[in-house]
């Protein structure tokens, strides 16, 4: 970097003006630094946690679990309107840990399978994520960071025939005054995953569509995926209805709230 004296033609004399010349490699470095600084404004939520062992009696069957790459590499990215901040959720590895934790206790035997057809099992379960949504305190106008995850469990017979598709909503919220920003969102994500787990385990202990499909007690092979949504039983209906609504897509907020939140 060079600092050169300037010439004031109007005054006809040299003055102490300075002109800063920045070499091109320094410009690149500054741009890179600015880029890195801006990327710090794009929170990345990576869930790395284990889940507690559920207290439940195992169903006396062998279940094959099909973990798709879409589930185990699941990443969700959303740029919030108006503030140009990207939120990225990476919960693929945690998804697998969650379902391993659930199914290892809910079935007498569990094997991982690599397709929806497999021998030596009574049922094949394919967990998947349909959607993830989140809200910040300034959007919901309270002090909560909230996360909604909508899982589905596809239940197949060993012959690969789809028996049922059961939706499982998960919701979690965390008080922003306990943890700050990103950490609150991460904790809310874990609560949403635990919430979904509690619904799955509860459904498997009662006479529900999920349990009937898993036990092969109800043949819904002619129904398209999601057909039993209209005929879901109370526990699932209650779970779906009691989940707080996601926030509006473009929530209105004042610049003061934005500043105070930031």
């Amino acid at each position: 970097m060079q600092i050169l004296p300037g010439h004031d033609a109007a005054a006809g004399s040299y003055v102490n003006q300075t002109m800063i010349i920045i070499p091109s490699h320094a410009k690149t470095a500054i741009l890179l630094a600015a880029g890195l600084a801006l990327s710090g404004c794009s929170p990345s939520i990576e869930v790395k946690t284990t889940f507690p062992e559920p207290l439940v009696d195992a169903l006396p069957i062998t279940a094959g679990i099909y973990y798709t790459e879409a589930l185990t590499n699941y990443t969700y990215n959303e740029e919030l309107p108006m503030d140009n901040i990207d939120w990225t959720f990476s919960i693929g590895a945690a998804n697998q840990l969650l379902f391993e934790s659930i199914f290892s206790e809910t079935f007498a035997q569990v094997v991982a399978v690599d397709s929806t057809t497999a021998g030596g099992v009574d049922v094949i379960l394919e967990p998947a994520i349909q959607a993830l949504e989140f809200s910040l305190p300034r959007q919901s106008r309270n002090n909560q960071y909230a996360v909604w995850i909508r899982y589905v469990i596809n239940v197949y017979g060993p012959d690969g025939k789809l028996r049922s598709t059961v939706p499982v909503p998960g919701y979690g919220e965390v008080d922003s005054r306990r943890l700050k920003g990103k950490e609150s969102m991460r904790a809310a994500t874990v609560w949403a995953m635990r919430d979904a787990a509690s619904i799955i385990i509860d459904s498997l202990t009662k006479d529900t569509a999920l349990r009937r499909a898993v036990m092969g007690e109800q043949n819904t092979s002619n129904s398209p995926p999601g057909a039993d949504l209209a005929d879901r039983d109370p526990i699932e209906a209650e779970a779906l209805e009691s989940s707080p609504e996601p926030p509006p897509e473009n929530p209105a907020f004042t610049i003061e709230e934005f500043i105070s939140e930031s």
Binding site: P52, L55, V56, G172, D195, S198
Partner: peptide
């Protein structure tokens, strides 16, 4: 809550 999982979650 961990010891009683999943019977002491906010929903259950």
């Amino acid at each position: 809550a961990d010891a009683l999982f999943p019977w002491f979650e906010p929903r259950t």
